[in-house]
Amino acid sequence: GKELVLALYDYQEKSPREVTMKKGDILTLLNSTNKDWWKVEVNDRQGFVPAAYVKKL
């Protein structure tokens, strides 16, 4: 099944490779191999968020 993460904080994208999320959002985790930036999918968009801003559910 898909792995989900919870947004712990708001995050505003700073580049086209990133995505914006709001605290409390549930996101689909696509890739967590990089310890600093995790790739997630939110609202049919894929991009990176800081790993410290999310936690695995």
Score class of each variant (00 low, 15 high):
residue 45 R to H: 07
residue 1 G to S: 14
residue 17 R to K: 11
residue 56 K to T: 08
residue 9 Y to N: 08
residue 46 Q to C: 10
residue 17 R to V: 11
residue 37 W to F: 06
residue 8 L to R: 05
residue 49 V to W: 01
residue 15 S to V: 04
residue 23 K to N: 04
residue 8 L to D: 02
residue 38 W to G: 00
residue 17 R to C: 14
residue 41 E to P: 00
residue 26 I to V: 11
residue 41 E to N: 06
residue 28 T to F: 12
residue 11 Y to G: 00
residue 41 E to S: 10
residue 25 D to V: 05
residue 54 V to Y: 02
residue 2 K to E: 09
residue 18 E to I: 04
residue 20 T to N: 06
residue 14 K to M: 11
residue 35 K to E: 11
residue 18 E to N: 05
residue 55 K to Q: 14
residue 25 D to Q: 15
residue 40 V to E: 00
residue 19 V to T: 06
residue 18 E to D: 06
residue 25 D to W: 13
residue 26 I to K: 05
residue 44 D to Q: 12
residue 27 L to R: 01
residue 3 E to G: 10
residue 42 V to H: 15
residue 52 A to I: 11
residue 38 W to I: 05
residue 57 L to Y: 09
residue 37 W to Y: 07
residue 40 V to S: 00
residue 46 Q to K: 10
residue 5 V to F: 07
residue 28 T to M: 12
residue 5 V to E: 01
residue 33 T to Y: 10
residue 32 S to N: 09
residue 25 D to C: 07
residue 49 V to G: 01
residue 51 A to Y: 02
residue 45 R to S: 06
residue 46 Q to M: 10
residue 33 T to M: 11
residue 52 A to K: 15
residue 28 T to G: 08
residue 38 W to Q: 01
residue 26 I to G: 01
residue 2 K to R: 14
residue 8 L to V: 08
residue 23 K to V: 07
residue 56 K to R: 14
residue 1 G to N: 13
residue 5 V to T: 03
residue 45 R to F: 05
residue 11 Y to V: 02
residue 52 A to W: 10
residue 28 T to W: 13
residue 12 Q to D: 14
residue 37 W to K: 03
residue 22 K to P: 00
residue 46 Q to F: 08
residue 4 L to S: 07
residue 42 V to D: 12
residue 20 T to G: 08
residue 47 G to A: 04
residue 15 S to W: 06
residue 18 E to Q: 11
residue 54 V to I: 08
residue 35 K to V: 12
residue 45 R to K: 11
residue 44 D to G: 15
residue 16 P to H: 10
residue 38 W to F: 07
residue 18 E to R: 05
residue 50 P to E: 02
residue 43 N to D: 14
residue 38 W to T: 03
residue 17 R to N: 14
residue 24 G to D: 06
residue 23 K to L: 05
residue 40 V to P: 00
residue 36 D to G: 10
residue 5 V to L: 12
residue 45 R to P: 01
residue 26 I to E: 03
residue 45 R to Q: 08
residue 11 Y to H: 04
residue 52 A to Y: 09
residue 14 K to L: 09
residue 30 L to V: 11
residue 5 V to H: 03
residue 25 D to G: 05
residue 43 N to V: 12
residue 17 R to L: 13
residue 51 A to V: 06
residue 48 F to A: 02
residue 18 E to V: 05
residue 30 L to I: 15
residue 29 L to K: 02
residue 10 D to Y: 05
residue 55 K to E: 11
residue 26 I to N: 03
residue 41 E to G: 08
residue 51 A to H: 03
residue 51 A to N: 02
residue 2 K to I: 13
residue 16 P to L: 09
residue 37 W to D: 01
residue 15 S to R: 09
residue 33 T to H: 12
residue 34 N to P: 05
residue 15 S to L: 08
residue 45 R to I: 08
residue 22 K to F: 12
residue 29 L to F: 03
residue 1 G to T: 15
residue 40 V to D: 00
residue 5 V to M: 05
residue 34 N to I: 06
residue 53 Y to W: 07
residue 3 E to D: 11
residue 21 M to V: 09
residue 4 L to K: 12
residue 39 K to R: 11
residue 52 A to V: 10
residue 26 I to Y: 06
residue 41 E to Y: 07
residue 27 L to M: 14
residue 41 E to K: 09
residue 25 D to I: 04
residue 9 Y to V: 11
residue 55 K to H: 11
residue 13 E to Q: 14
residue 17 R to D: 12
residue 55 K to R: 14
residue 51 A to M: 05
residue 42 V to P: 00
residue 4 L to D: 04
residue 37 W to I: 03
residue 7 A to C: 12
residue 53 Y to P: 01
residue 3 E to R: 13
residue 32 S to F: 07
residue 3 E to S: 12
residue 14 K to F: 06
residue 4 L to F: 15
residue 46 Q to A: 11
residue 18 E to M: 05
residue 11 Y to K: 01
residue 48 F to E: 04
residue 27 L to P: 01
residue 24 G to Y: 05
residue 5 V to I: 08
residue 28 T to E: 11
residue 27 L to E: 00
residue 8 L to C: 08
residue 20 T to H: 04
residue 2 K to G: 10
residue 40 V to Q: 00
residue 10 D to K: 03
residue 45 R to G: 05
residue 54 V to R: 01
residue 14 K to E: 08
residue 31 N to W: 08
residue 42 V to G: 15
residue 22 K to D: 04
residue 56 K to C: 10
residue 9 Y to L: 10
residue 30 L to Y: 04
residue 38 W to C: 04
residue 43 N to S: 10
residue 8 L to A: 04
residue 17 R to W: 15
residue 11 Y to A: 01
residue 32 S to A: 12
residue 36 D to R: 14
residue 3 E to Q: 14
residue 33 T to N: 12
residue 4 L to P: 04
residue 9 Y to H: 11
residue 30 L to E: 03
residue 51 A to K: 07
residue 36 D to W: 15
residue 57 L to P: 03
residue 21 M to T: 03
residue 20 T to E: 03
residue 8 L to P: 00
residue 29 L to W: 02
residue 35 K to D: 10
residue 35 K to C: 11
residue 54 V to Q: 00
residue 4 L to Q: 10
residue 56 K to L: 14
residue 12 Q to L: 13
residue 33 T to F: 10
residue 20 T to S: 15
residue 56 K to I: 14
residue 49 V to Q: 00
residue 4 L to V: 09
residue 32 S to M: 09
residue 39 K to I: 15
residue 23 K to F: 05
residue 30 L to K: 05
residue 20 T to L: 03
residue 48 F to V: 07
residue 33 T to Q: 12
residue 27 L to K: 00
residue 24 G to T: 02
residue 8 L to T: 04
residue 49 V to N: 01
residue 28 T to N: 08
residue 53 Y to N: 05
residue 23 K to A: 12
residue 43 N to Y: 13
residue 37 W to V: 03
residue 20 T to P: 06
residue 7 A to N: 00
residue 29 L to R: 01
residue 56 K to F: 11
residue 20 T to A: 07
residue 43 N to M: 13
residue 24 G to L: 03
residue 53 Y to L: 12
residue 28 T to A: 10
residue 14 K to H: 09
residue 10 D to S: 09
residue 39 K to L: 15
residue 53 Y to I: 07
residue 52 A to M: 12
residue 34 N to K: 07
residue 23 K to C: 08
residue 36 D to Y: 15
residue 22 K to C: 11
residue 35 K to H: 12
residue 24 G to I: 01
residue 16 P to K: 10
residue 50 P to K: 04
residue 55 K to D: 06
residue 17 R to P: 06
residue 12 Q to F: 14
residue 41 E to I: 09
residue 8 L to W: 04
residue 25 D to E: 12
residue 22 K to V: 09
residue 28 T to L: 14
residue 4 L to A: 06
residue 46 Q to R: 11
residue 57 L to H: 05
residue 44 D to K: 11
residue 18 E to W: 04
residue 6 L to E: 10
residue 56 K to M: 11
residue 54 V to P: 01
residue 39 K to D: 04
residue 13 E to Y: 05
residue 32 S to E: 15
residue 13 E to V: 07
